[in-house]
């Protein structure tokens, strides 16, 4: 499925993508309730292959909930979510398939503390993809080279710095060779001096053509890497645009207010 837009039209349509791309993720009319509280209200978003979308917005606006719906860590209540042609349903096989195609990086790393760094990375390829151990470890070492900490392979997560842990978490997610990477505030729990190393890894990943949805407060990263920026407030997408549009000439008052508060 390919859609064409001229550049001017892109910003009017919150669901649109920049340029001509295959659609990787389609989110249509998605609602999400926690009890009576509606955390997502009629969300529409399409993310193209190799696109980097940065999601920003105030605390409690539903950013985490949105990306957690994509790999079914939260179940959406209305609308549909399609990832690489597979629609999320209650069928566990569908869910498993989508989880294999999407990697996720959490704010608090969530590395497995009882496994070594290498085992953290190789567990899923070995158990889910049935990769032989030697091959999985070779892959694991390659990924550790990529995130620049091969010498930490035998350590346990608790023996590493936050920045190193988060880079291992990225390697772990990449080990399943996903088509999409979801990042939920990957640098928010890090000391300032470690934020850079994680962002560098993410930038490299974006350059390699990975499709990424990144929830972050790092506006520098958004400006530099994002193809589009999505601004959310109160469970809704308020505004979508290229970084230039978004930071130079935001249209909505809500966006202006938010930007004035954080910039």
């Amino acid at each position: 499925m390919t859609e064409q837009h001229d550049d001017a039209a892109v910003f009017d349509d919150a669901t649109a993508m920049t340029g001509t791309r295959d659609v990787m993720i389609e989110i249509e009319h998605v609602d999400k309730f926690f009890g009576d509280f509606q955390a997502l209200k009629d969300i529409n978003l399409k993310v193209g292959a190799q696109e980097v979308v940065v999601v920003i917005g105030p605390s409690g606006s539903g950013k985490s909930t949105l990306i957690r719906c994509i790999n079914r860590l939260e179940e959406h209540d209305g609308g549909r979510i399609v990832v690489d042609g597979t629609e999320l349903s209650n069928d566990i096989r569908n869910i498993q398939e989508i989880r294999r195609e999407t990697g996720m990086v959490f704010q608090s790393f969530n590395l497995f503390p009882h496994l070594t760094v290498l085992d953290n990375i190789t567990l899923a390829p070995r158990k889910v993809r049935r990769m032989p151990k030697a091959k999985a470890e070779e892959l694991g070492m390659e990924l550790l080279e990529m995130v620049k900490i091969p010498e930490q392979a035998g350590k346990y997560p608790g023996q590493m710095s936050g920045g190193q842990q988060q880079r291992v978490a990225i390697a772990r997610a990449l080990a399943m060779n996903p088509k999409v990477m979801l990042f939920d505030e990957p640098t928010s729990a890090l000391d300032p001096e470690m934020i850079g190393e994680v962002l560098d890894t993410m930038k490299e990943l974006a350059r390699s053509g990975m499709t990424m949805i990144v929830v972050t407060h790092e506006m520098g990263f958004a400006r530099e890497v994002a193809d589009r920026v999505v601004f959310m407030a109160d469970g809704q997408i308020v505004e979508v645009g290229t970084p230039e549009h978004f930071f130079e000439s935001p249209r909505e008052d809500r966006t202006k207010l938010f930007l004035s508060q954080i910039l």
């Binding site: 498993q96 608090s108 969530n110 899923a124 158990k127 889910v128």
Partner: peptide, 29 residues
């Protein structure tokens, strides 16, 4: 912690493997 199960889900482990490889070893320890 719940994050452990979420991470296990996110890498695609089936429910039985989430329990067997991630939750139980930590719980028993």
């Amino acid at each position: 912690p719940r994050g452990q199960i979420e991470a296990a889900k996110a890498v695609g482990l089936s429910p039985i493997r989430q329990t067997g490889y991630i939750v139980l070893p930590q719980a028993l320890r």
